[in-house]
Amino acid sequence: MSDKLVFRFDVQGDDFTSAGQASVQVKKNLRQLGFDTEVIKRVSIAMYEGEINMVIHAGGGTAEVSVTEKYIEIILEDKGPGIEDIEKAMQAGYSTAPDSIRSLGFGAGMGLPNMKKNSDSMEIESKLGEGTRIVMKVNI
C-alpha cells in the first residue's frame, strides 16, 4: 500500500533508563490516530518488550512501525550478537540477561513469549555475530 504511515526510531543502547522511549511515542501516536485501546495495548507491549531486549542484548538498534489498513507492523532490527537458539529463547522463563538487568526488573525470560502473545504474527531472523530482525504484525 502506498499511503501507509511509517514511524522510525533509533533505539539507543547505552542507557537502560531511557529504554522504551520509542514505544511510549508510538503509543501516543496510535492514540492520536484513534485506534482501539486493545490494539494499542498489544502493539505497545510487543514493541516495548522488543525495545528493552535490543537495549539489554544488542546495544540498541532501529524500530519501524507501519500503520496499514489491516494491521500495524513493527520491525525491530539490531546488529547485536544474534540469538543462538531461537526455540529456547521462545520458552517462557529462559533468559540470558545479566543479573544487573534483573535487578532493574527485567530479564525474566518473558519478553519473546510475550511479544508472540501480543502479536498476530511474529517472525524472527537471527544470525550469530550479525544481528536480529523481528517482524510483528497486530491486526486492526
Partner: peptide, 29 residues
C-alpha cells in the same frame, strides 16, 4: 516488570518497591 507486562490484564494499580523510569513506562504500556 517483566511479569507486570506478561500478566496484568485489567485496569490495575501497580504496587512496587522498584524505582526506575521503566516502572512508569511499564505502567503506561
Amino acid at each position: 516488570m517483566s511479569d507486570v507486562l506478561a500478566y496484568v490484564t485489567d485496569q490495575a494499580v501497580l504496587l512496587t518497591g522498584l524505582v526506575n523510569p521503566q516502572v512508569i513506562r511499564t505502567a503506561l504500556m
